[in-house]
Design a protein around this nucleic acid. Structure first.
Length: 463
RNA sequence: UCCCCAGUAGCUCAGUUGGCAGAGCAAUUGGCUGUUAACCAAUGGGUCCGCGGUUCAAGUCCGUGCUGGGGAGCCA
């Protein structure tokens, strides 16, 4: 290859106002059509949704081989960038040299037509080469960056909390056990001897970085964690995965209202960021994936989210004419149908529900003056359900210890957590947002498996 | 884990009261052509998800298992 020539990515080429003349592109052939004296090749290099059209003429020395280039093949093309006389594209490349880097056999599974999401899940290693999956994974990348940018601008510090944890009762669901004990040794002795295990005690994959984040909020002020989270729940739905990414901001000197303000600002800012920075990829979803998406995003960005207490929500559900499968009443956790009714039918926009009964919420949430409810907040969004769960944390040592006693939690193993309430305890709040659920919200993709590069779910860990 | 639905060519699907296994797209070959998921023609392509049963005969009916999808629970 000509080392003097530098490769230009297709997203750069497509934005050019004037032709630089000679260009070099490398990518994969999406489709090829023959004409009388030349071949049309559409090349995609993953830098953007769109392809660049290459005109490979019969005067090329390897024209016979070029005519055999199949969908999925990798090529390197050097030629002149010229205005395209055809419709549908501004530029095209008049090839002077086409190097076939790799010829894909006709068994290449991706065809020049629409494939079902279910089929593409069975070839998760190849699906990012399609328009839709290429688009969502570019958006996923951009959104991860946007999260860091959002909090960096606000003066938050990024905190990486442990993936392996020693606490076995964080109460957020079933946990994956981490061990270095060999199955043979365990079978032989008949017991899991945790004292002989790597950490000398039971250890698990994290279900939340919140407790760690609270410690750092008491030191650095405003922090956030953003990383992988693991749940060993046997849940088989389109909204759950065993491994997912969660964003968890934690803020000192912050009450429940300010917590909701933060969450609402975040969701709005990220949505705007997606539309402004992933315009071409977002258009694919706005136009073809979910017809209701433009309205939904417009509502999210421009309308204030609804805010009401759990008690008021129960009132609305009880007085609504809608027939529910499950009865509602104070003290009962809301069912999916209730949450959907509130977000999709009643308010038709994201809804914060606050002040849930303390009996259905974790120990760390701040007990309200009524001693019946806690300063919790869940953000319910149309189409997804719960996107965010958060609370003002219980900063009063005596109240917190009483709650832990009520819930039979071993205070001694939370000694360090309780220390934060002993030494300079202040009101503070935080929340967790499922990153994949947010991606589903802004893309209209209906299954969480389709916004994760290689999803891990019950009974499925291929790739 | 529970409820419902599905599994037929590489992909998407049709297949009637049980009676010879089908279509479109893809692939291959040829034709045509500054084409846009190009077009036209021909050809090849099957463990009808697995196992067991009913029947003269099962893609079709029954049982069971597996896989996938939708919903519920749990949650982010």
């Amino acid at each position: 290859m000509d080392n003097a020539m530098k490769r230009t990515k297709i997203h750069v080429l497509r934005q050019l106002e004037n032709s630089p003349g000679q260009v070099l592109v490398k990518g994969w052939v999406r489709t090829r059509r023959d004409s009388k004296e030349f071949s049309f090749m559409e090349i995609n290099d993953g830098s953007c949704l769109k392809n660049i059209q290459v005109i490979a003429g019969q005067d090329l020395e390897n024209y016979v081989q070029i005519q055999a280039v199949s969908t999925g093949s990798a090529v390197s093309v050097e030629g002149l960038l010229v205005a395209s006389p055809g419709k549908g594209q501004k530029w095209e490349i008049q090839a002077q040299r086409v190097e076939i880097i790799n010829l894909a056999p006709d068994s290449y599974p991706l065809q020049k037509k629409r494939h079902s999401d279910e089929f593409l899940r069975t070839i998760a290693h190849l699906r990012p080469r399609t328009n839709k999956y290429g688009a969502i994974f570019r958006i996923r990348s951009e959104m991860a960056f946007a999260i860091h940018q959002f909090y960096n601008k606000k003066g938050f510090r990024y905190l990486t909390t442990p993936v392996i944890t020693g606490s076995d009762c964080e109460g957020a669901g079933e946990m994956f056990r981490v061990t270095s004990l060999s199955p043979e040794a365990v079978k032989k002795s008949g017991i899991m001897d945790f004292k002989a295990d790597f950490f000398g005690q039971e250890s698990n994959l994290t279900v939340s970085g919140q407790l760690s984040a609270e410690m750092f909020a008491m030191a650095l002020g405003d922090v956030y964690t953003f990383g992988p989270t693991f749940r060993a729940e046997n849940s088989n739905t389109s909204r759950h995965a065993a491994e997912f990414w969660m964003l968890e901001p934690e803020m000192a000197f912050c009450d429940l209202q300010q917590n909701m303000d933060q969450a609402e600002e975040l969701v709005k800012a990220l949505s705007v960021h997606a539309l402004e920075n992933c315009e071409e990829d977002m258009d694919l979803f706005l136009q073809f994936v979910d017809k209701s998406l433009p309205d939904r995003l417009n509502t999210i960005i421009h309308q204030p989210f609804a805010r009401l207490s759990y008690t008021d929500a129960i009132e609305i559900l009880q007085t609504s004419k809608k027939e529910f499968e499950f009865k509602v009443g104070f003290g009962i956790d809301l069912q999916s149908e209730h949450e959907r009714f509130l977000a999709e039918d009643y308010f038709k926009k994201p809804v914060f529900l606050t002040d849930y009964p303390k009996t259905i919420k974790p120990f760390y949430m701040r007990v309200n003056e009524d001693d019946k409810t806690v300063a919790a907040m869940d953000l319910l969004v149309p189409g997804i359900g719960e996107l965010i769960g958060g609370s003002q944390r219980e900063e009063r040592l005596d109240v917190l210890e009483k709650r832990m006693d009520e819930m039979n939690l071993p205070k001694e193993s939370y000694w360090w957590y309780l220390d934060s309430r002993r030494f300079g305890s202040v009101p503070h709040s935080g929340f967790g947002m499922g990153f994949e659920r947010f991606l589903m919200l802004i893309s209209g993709i209906k299954n969480i498996r389709d916004v994760i590069p290689f999803p891990r779910t019950v009974g499925s860990i291929d790739f």
